[in-house]
Design a protein around this nucleic acid. Structure first.
Lengths: 188, 188
DNA sequence: CCGAATTATTTTAAGTTTAAAATATCTCCA
DNA sequence: TGGAGATATTTTAAACTTAAAATAATTCGG
């Protein structure tokens, strides 16, 4: 599986190709930059639409979206994990949404450290409206892709996701191949 | 091209399928969520590595990366557009990087409103080191994809990007199909 | 049952980010 | 050439975000 490095590139391949820090990582880097551009483009457009149409911020909408999928409520920790943001971030977000009457907190049964957050009736109604528009916007933004494109993208992003998850969840401390115990890398 | 809506779904298709606001946008929505998850996962990992290995924040690294590609310097506006963040954001970021001796500002020749920002020698050296490690990390994170996967992803993301760009750059004011002048949408 | 380790959340400080208003300069055409 | 409109940047206020330390509560092995 690791024999076909550099496939498609005419440059000479030395024995050191597999040594971390000197490989050719151009393709992956370009992929990452394109992914970022694509995501930022869409995210900025959605942020702008949410603000101008509904006067709501993107993080608030995201939090509401998580709660809408969990009728029984979520703890702050659940929200932090699902939104992939820090715990402290969620604390402040929930605080402000409670003030605005969008969400409510109640003690979590069986664990006095936690509380459960859920949408208020008003929050749910508000989200319902926004979610419908949001779905339209997203469909518009991806309007140039056909069903096959979407399927392929879904599959490849799933693959990228598990690849990244493996590395990220793996042992810290290695910019290495992560399977080799050696660590004679160029560090700079 | 628009005949095969709802393909693969057993639900009844009425005449109103093409009316904005009632279409089936599940696939696009799922794609968007997966894209976000994937990006956030990788971005968070890179953020964490940049901090622990080099004690630098992601936005600073991003700004330095833009400058490294432009030896002659960039205006704040250039940086704002390329990084896809607000102008005010760049002002503060540059301010702090100047303080740290990473970048420098000089008046832009021929336009007294602008200034050119570029990396200092120290900033360039610092970036060089970080960029090499960064490239390794990205390659690791995408390690589960083969060359074909990457090519396909690149192509489909390019397609998504221009699709989104068309909508985002298009006329504001329409959550509509953007080609129809009518606007009798469900607004909530 | 006790205390060490873990987990859930909050707090703090600093940095990032946005939108909108304010400045300053430039362009261009009538 | 005068000024209206466009462009570049800064400022402001508020929100968002993170990392790290601090609290509080739970779990669990001995």
């Amino acid at each position: 599986m690791e024999e076909l490095v550099n496939e498609g590139f005419p440059e000479a391949i030395d024995a050191e190709t597999r040594v971390q820090g000197s490989g050719d990582h151009r393709a992956e880097l370009r992929l990452w930059l394109r992914m970022l551009t694509c995501t930022n483009l869409i995210e900025n457009e959605i942020r702008s639409l949410l603000r101008t149409r509904f006067d709501v911020t993107l993080p608030r909408f995201d939090l509401m979206a998580q709660l809408e999928k969990a009728p029984d409520g979520l703890t702050l920790g659940d929200l932090s994990r699902r939104m992939m943001v820090s715990a402290g971030n969620v604390t402040g977000l929930v605080e402000r949404l409670v003030q605005d009457g969008i969400v409510e907190r109640r003690p979590a049964p069986g664990d006095r450290r936690s509380s459960l957050v859920s949408l208020t009736a008003r929050g749910r109604a508000s989200f319902e409206t926004m979610a419908a528009a949001h779905a339209d916007w997203v469909a518009d933004l991806f309007g140039g892709l056909d069903a096959g494109d979407i399927d392929t993208l879904m599959a490849l992003l799933a693959k990228a996701k598990s690849s990244a998850r493996e590395v990220a969840d793996g042992p810290p401390q290695l910019s290495q191949n992560a399977t080799l115990p050696k660590k004679d890398t160029a560090d700079g």
